[in-house]
């Protein structure tokens, strides 16, 4: 699988000078929250307070800590200047989150709405069971990307790992490079779009030619994200629907038992 260099996004941006959290900042201003080795509960509480004041939040010294920026509301606007651990942006409820380096497992899991952008790479299960919103990974994403997805869009500019899209119900996973083995395994619904190579399609998946309107929709989304040269030869993976009625295809059979 071809790796994808996310480019400049991997660099840590020098933080802008801004008032510290809790110093009377408010709407339109930017506040800095330091992570370091502080308890996550305290860090997230500071983030939520800054968000409640209407501030844009820059989170520094992230140390790949887990559970940063969990369950944030609409209107929250965060930038994580370093890498983050598991479940960053999990249960997102409308926030706009940017991770300037890499993200661990479960990025944006169960997100209902909002936008999460990762300038680097994402680990396993990015966008797991997400219901809506947009998750955008500029590098590669790990195995099980979009597992159990229920809605929204996942855009991965690099490649995705094994079993991505596993048992997804709805939504789109759009991969600009390659998809590893078992792509779109056991899909109930939803779509997986791959521009590069597919290691192997998953169980009960089907590769189909997308129609022009669908392609335009995907390419419009990519253009809006600043992805250059969006025109690709797309392969769309959908459910084979053979497992939809594995156990009850003969209703009369149930009366035998």
């Amino acid at each position: 699988m071809a790796g994808h260099d996310p480019g400049d996004g991997g660099d840590v941006t020098a933080p802008a000078h801004s008032p510290a959290a809790g110093t009377g900042a408010g709407a339109g201003t930017e506040e800095i929250v330091e992570v370091g080795h502080r308890p996550i509960r305290e860090v997230n509480a500071d983030i939520r307070k800054a968000v409640a004041r209407g501030s844009r939040v820059r989170v520094q010294d992230t140390l790949s800590r887990h559970n940063l920026g969990v369950a944030l509301p609409e209107g929250a606007d965060l930038v994580f200047e370093g890498s983050v651990g598991y479940y960053c942006g999990g249960l997102n409820n409308g926030a706009t989150i940017r991770v300037e380096r890499n993200a661990g497992w479960g990025l944006g899991e169960a997100m209902a709405s909002g936008v999460i952008t990762v300038d680097g790479y994402a680990g396993m299960a990015a966008g797991a069971s997400m219901l809506g919103g947009l998750l955008h990974v500029r590098g590669d994403a790990g195995p099980r990307t979009g597992v159990a997805q229920k809605g929204g869009d996942i855009v991965v500019e690099g490649s995705v790992g094994f079993l991505s899209g596993f048992m997804a119900h709805a939504g789109r996973i759009i991969v600009l490079a390659d998809a590893a083995d078992a792509a779109g395994d056991s899909l109930w619904g939803g779509e997986m779009w791959v521009a590069g190579n597919i290691g192997s399609p998953g169980v009960d998946s089907r590769i189909v030619e997308p129609d022009a309107e669908e392609v335009a929709s995907v390419e419009d989304l990519l253009s809006s994200l600043g992805v250059g040269d969006v025109s690709r030869r797309w392969k769309k993976i959908v459910s084979g629907q053979k497992l939809w009625h594995f156990e009850s295809r003969d209703a009369q059979a149930w009366l035998m038992i």
């Binding site: 497992w105 797991a128 069971s129 596993f166 109930w188 594995f246």
Partner: peptide, 19 residues
């Protein structure tokens, strides 16, 4: 409620998706 097609046999995953 489950974001499923109507009348499919729903067989849920056994492993959690993100741990």
């Amino acid at each position: 409620m489950r974001t499923l097609p109507v009348e499919v046999d729903q067989r849920s995953t056994v492993r959690h998706p993100d741990f």
